[in-house]
Design a protein around this nucleic acid. Structure first.
Lengths: 128, 128
DNA sequence: CTGAATCCTTACTGATACTG
DNA sequence: CAGTATCAGTAAGGATTCAG
């Protein structure tokens, strides 16, 4: 989804907007689920677990999650540098409703696929 | 979010992908919530209720929802044409987990905003 | 290792104009 | 009224390069 910041249909003041903005991008949920499953992970390891994510996108996604207080970034002042990431309490609480989505997807996935297969593109505004 | 169909990180076989693909675009949830609130609506009325959506985007969003079996399209063979849209049972069931997200957003919205305000951009991989 | 900065391609979106 | 088709601007994502 392309979520433009400006001319936002949800409007900035709308609380749900902040959530949808996160769930709506390509990697956030994947990163969140990965951190939930594995606990604390360092950058490279996290990347290896999130299939196909680029370095750029992982860094960007993590920044936003950190900024929103969903993920904690822990820097170890070592050489070479080591940075760990883990869910905050807020992040964990966010995963609860997310599982609702997952559950629905798993339960109704077949139904959706069946509907897609059966679908016939409508002839514009004219019925049988 | 831009959700490319190809090179999909979630992979096509992954059930959750089909859901995320929908929640991830700009208008789908808005349309879904609007239909939930108002029940059956015809194209123009629906458009007037979904603030700022273009005719093109509304049509496109409805097609996908229809294709996935979440929304029912009812064509009245009249002149001028009249087309009604309403949620299917599947569509309504999808709104349940969606409300979980909404709830979380409303509950934790302030926390997120606070985290954003407090956030300081990190100096690259070096601690105190 | 953990990033940030740049470039470039692709996808999304809106405006506009045109049908049945 | 209810769309579709086309066009053009913008934003997202990937690849690459550079740095602490």
């Amino acid at each position: 989804m392309s979520l433009h910041k400006s001319k936002d249909p949800y409007a900035e003041r709308c609380p749900i907007r902040d959530v949808l903005e996160r769930t709506g991008d390509r990697w956030t949920l994947l990163v969140l689920f990965t951190l939930e499953e594995w606990g604390t992970l360092r950058f490279t390891v996290l990347r290896s677990k999130v299939q196909d994510i680029s370095q750029r996108m992982l860094a960007q996604t993590l920044r936003r999650l950190e900024q929103d207080g969903l993920v904690l970034r822990i820097v170890h002042p070592t050489v070479p540098p080591r940075v760990d990431y883990e869910l905050t309490a807020l992040g964990k609480s966010f995963l609860v409703p997310l599982h609702g989505l997952l559950q629905w997807a798993q339960t109704h996935h077949e139904q959706v696929r069946a509907a897609r297969s059966a679908y016939q593109a409508p002839t514009p505004a004219q019925a049988l």
